[in-house]
Amino acid sequence: MPVRRGHVAPQNTFLDTIIRKFEGQSRKFIIANARVENCAVIYCNDGFCELCGYSRAEVMQRPCTCDFLHGPRTQRRAAAQIAQALLGAEERKVEIAFYRKDGSCFLCLVDVVPVKNEDGAVIMFILNFEVVMEKDMVGSPAHDTNHRGPPTSWLAPGRAKTFRLKLPALLALTARESSVRSGGAGGAGAPGAVVVDVDLTPAAPSSESLALDEVTAMDNHVAGLGPAEERRALVGPGSPPRSAPGQLPSPRAHSLNPDASGSSCSLARTRSRESCASVRRASSADDIEAMRAGVLPPPPRHASTGAMHPLRSGLLNSTSDSDLVRYRTISKIPQITLNFVDLKGDPFLASPTSDREIIAPKIKERTHNVTEKVTQVLSLGADVLPEYKLQAPRIHRWTILHYSPFKAVWDWLILLLVIYTAVFTPYSAAFLLKETEEGPPATECGYACQPLAVVDLIVDIMFIVDILINFRTTYVNANEEVVSHPGRIAVHYFKGWFLIDMVAAIPFDLLI
């Protein structure tokens, strides 16, 4: 008679799926529990143990900040960024110097990925580790590398530091407007667009060049630039800015003055950032001319202004700041037409079709709590990747769950009947059967004279019903998954307890 339990259901295979997918890609990662103190490590794979030199037993239950890997060259700011990422709910990448158990130093890129439950609360953290440099290539500990984003994938490793954006290309926007319009339909740009040429040739750093990471940081200074100062900065030398009595002219307006920039070969870094931020506020060169004239017309309804409409929906549905990093990277690809469009465009503009998908598509409701890094690593669709929660398995109709209350009560009843059979069957065979043979035949009273025979008949009927119930009862397979398919249940029961239950259900007393 089957006594099969499996009270692990309803099970959740999400954690096993993450481990299996990460292991298949030869990654070095740990999984931490966000619900406990210090976000203790609950799993670390073999790749991480080989990377740091510690065994799994030495890593388990330690804080996922990996303070046991810190050393003299470990930056405090990087460690603080990892700790801050564990307090938030967004994906974050941090470069930090770690030390192995043998004392060797290596520069590592740590990717902190939160995993949320159905309520939107962070319950786990996945920390992925990628070695960037070994100890002989690690720089000085005073050099802070965590304020910069990861290198873009479309640049060669040897040319990542030679990417320079020439400031004269930004200063000569109005001069290039006529050349853009003359391109017409034969050019790649839309009317009114501004073409910015980027020099990728390796050259020595000069005062006129600005690194790509500095251009990325310009967006942080746009908020500090007032509207009046932006307007004066875009007017140009024809209309000098008016300053109040006793007030000095704005240095932001002076930063885009061609006369002032041409007199000296070098520009201050602050002026460069502010000038680029001011130019980015204009949607095209037409807006710059309109600002000089004193009238700013409404933005025209053409394809170039609607190019950012799908980007707005993608940004609203993005799951991490990696989408913004990807957008900034692609927006700086050289030799393309940049349409400086305000994100607050007309909502009635139709979304044009684009061959290049900048932001990841909208994630469906079932995966809105899973970050983009987890979705990318697992390579699963929205119909396959579940949320991290207890999910009731989908069972067929008329199927009994093996952990249901009805099955528990039924098993206790069958257990009592088995005990009765084990006690009274030998007793009936030894004593009652002998008395029946010696006594007179009682054929007239039937079952009324033999109450134990009636009980034995009921017990046999219950055993037959138990066999039928076992054909529709779920079970737990070797992978700790609840199986509810009727065919698989029948095959599993035939290979197991079916023969024993059938022999126990045969009414031998009635056959004798």
Rank of each mutant, 00 (worst) to 15 (best):
D259R: 06
D136C: 08
C39V: 07
E365P: 14
E372M: 11
L87F: 15
S266H: 10
L315I: 15
D144Q: 15
P150R: 13
T152F: 09
A211R: 11
P298D: 11
S178D: 06
P386Q: 01
Q247D: 15
V370Q: 05
V194S: 06
V122R: 07
D323F: 03
P150S: 08
F68A: 01
T152I: 06
F22L: 14
T353K: 13
V138Y: 06
E365F: 09
S243E: 15
P157H: 09
S264V: 09
S379V: 03
A282C: 08
D342L: 01
G306L: 08
K21G: 06
K101P: 01
T305M: 11
A268Q: 15
G158Y: 15
V132Y: 06
D197P: 05
G53N: 01
K161P: 08
P245V: 09
I30H: 01
S331C: 13
P361C: 07
A217D: 11
V196P: 01
T152K: 06
E230S: 12
V59M: 06
A85S: 11
R301A: 12
V377C: 06
R312D: 14
A80H: 08
P300D: 14
T270F: 14
G24Y: 07
E357L: 05
F348V: 11
L170C: 15
T74F: 01
P300I: 14
V195Q: 01
V138A: 15
T65I: 09
N146Q: 15
T152G: 08
E365A: 12
A142N: 15
P386T: 01
S209H: 15
G236T: 08
N38P: 14
N128G: 15
S331R: 11
R181Y: 06
E50K: 10
F163Y: 07
P237H: 15
L315M: 08
T65N: 07
P202L: 01
R56A: 07
F48G: 01
T145W: 09
L315V: 14
R269K: 08
V110H: 01
Q61N: 09
G183S: 05
H70C: 14
D323K: 08
A169W: 15
M218A: 15
P157I: 09
K332C: 04
R159Q: 09
V384H: 04
V138H: 13
K364Y: 03
P249V: 15
L380H: 01
H254I: 13
H143F: 05
E289S: 04
E130M: 09
P300Q: 03
L316G: 11
I96R: 01
R301K: 08
A97G: 05
G24H: 10
Q11W: 07
T371P: 04
A172E: 12
E372P: 05
Q84G: 09
A169F: 06
R35G: 11
I358D: 15
P202C: 01
V377G: 04
A282S: 11
K166D: 08
Y54L: 01
A307S: 14
I96C: 06
V325W: 10
Q84P: 01
Q61W: 08
R35P: 09
R35Q: 14
V36Y: 15
P141M: 14
V138G: 13
N317V: 07
S263H: 06
Y43Q: 01
D136Y: 05
S284Q: 05
A160E: 15
R312K: 14
P361E: 07
F340Q: 15
K161N: 14
S207D: 05
I18P: 01
R20S: 09
V196Y: 04
K332F: 01
P237D: 05
N257A: 06
L380I: 04
H302I: 09
A350V: 05
V370N: 04
I358H: 11
G236I: 08
L380E: 04
H254N: 07
V131N: 06
V115K: 06
E214H: 11
A190F: 03
P352S: 10
L155P: 07
T375L: 14
G224Q: 05
L69K: 01
P300E: 13
S284H: 08
R273F: 11
L107D: 07
E130R: 06
G184F: 11
E274Y: 03
I126M: 08
A142Y: 05
K135V: 07
S318P: 07
G306F: 07
D102G: 05
S250M: 15
I330G: 10
Y327E: 12
M124G: 03
S264H: 04
A185G: 14
L378A: 05
D346Y: 05
V180M: 07
S278G: 09
L349D: 07
C52R: 01
G47I: 01
R271E: 15
I42M: 07
S261E: 14
G381H: 15
G314V: 07
N117C: 15
